[in-house]
């Protein structure tokens, strides 16, 4: 195992806990959407998993909290809280992987992004400018949820915030990239949806036959790379095989 770092960071606010039923504890590291808090959540999720504690059944991180599912026959919530504090205070550095950056190729506009013009008009920008602003940001995956593989991304440029569609579409194709208010995201699976669609990725983001089934983890960085329609179809063909 790695070198123990015994210097607790006194600048960090103390973790708080919430009870979520008889088998889960919510550890609260902050109350706001904040990259530093989310990074602490990412580190803690990695440390808890690496501890392989027999009483811990699963760890599910979100924006500024994480859920620890535990076996109440093996540990009580007070002892679990102490364990989490201890894991953080004596963090094993090697247990935490550096944040990965995942690049998602996107063909913007045309049939893949039918609302690109709406987003441009709404913000008084040229379509190319919308693409530039959307693809130059490095986003943070604050959490994965809502649907299998759906990532909650933070960091959308305020110049391209756009309200949702007045009437949601009954079917949005898998891989569609959209904007809803101040959020951007990718539909991993075909579903109904009300986001403004500006492009689509040819990658299969969620594939339950693949290990891991999604190409990113909570806390990773994600960026979009503009591609042509030709590249889209070529990559889509490779993704099918």
């Amino acid at each position: 195992m790695g070198i123990r770092d015994d210097r607790p960071d006194i600048r960090l606010p103390a973790v708080r806990f919430r009870i979520s039923g008889d088998r889960a504890l919510i550890a609260v590291y902050g109350d706001e959407v904040d990259p530093a808090v989310n990074e602490r959540v990412r580190r803690m999720a990695a440390l808890i998993e690496a501890s392989r504690h027999p009483a811990i059944e699963a760890v599910v991180p979100a924006y500024c909290t994480l859920a620890v599912h535990y076996d109440p026959g093996l540990i009580n919530p007070a002892a679990l809280g102490e364990l989490l504090r201890d894991l953080e205070a004596h963090a094993i550095k090697a247990a935490v992987q550096p944040q990965a950056t995942v690049e998602i190729p996107v063909c913007y506009g045309g049939e893949f992004g039918p609302d690109l013009a709406t987003v441009a008009t709404c913000n008084r920008l040229a379509s190319d400018e919308v693409i530039r602003l959307h693809s130059q940001t490095v986003y943070r995956i604050y959490a994965i949820g809502f649907a299998p593989g759906f990532c909650y991304l933070g960091g959308l440029d305020p110049r391209i915030h756009t309200p949702r569609l007045a009437t949601p579409r009954s079917r949005v194709p898998a891989g569609s990239v959209g904007i809803a208010g101040g959020q951007t995201g990718i539909y991993p699976l075909a579903s109904p949806g009300g986001w403004q669609l500006i492009g689509r990725t040819p990658l299969a983001l969620f594939d339950c036959g693949r290990t891991p089934p999604v190409p990113y983890r909570p806390g990773d960085a994600l960026c979009f790379r503009p591609i042509s329609a030709d590249t889209f179809f070529r990559l889509a063909g490779e993704s099918d095989r």
Partner: peptide, 10 residues
């Protein structure tokens, strides 16, 4: 709230 993990029974 800022989205949090949920469990069955919440």
């Amino acid at each position: 709230i800022v989205s949090e993990p949920v469990v069955p029974g919440n």
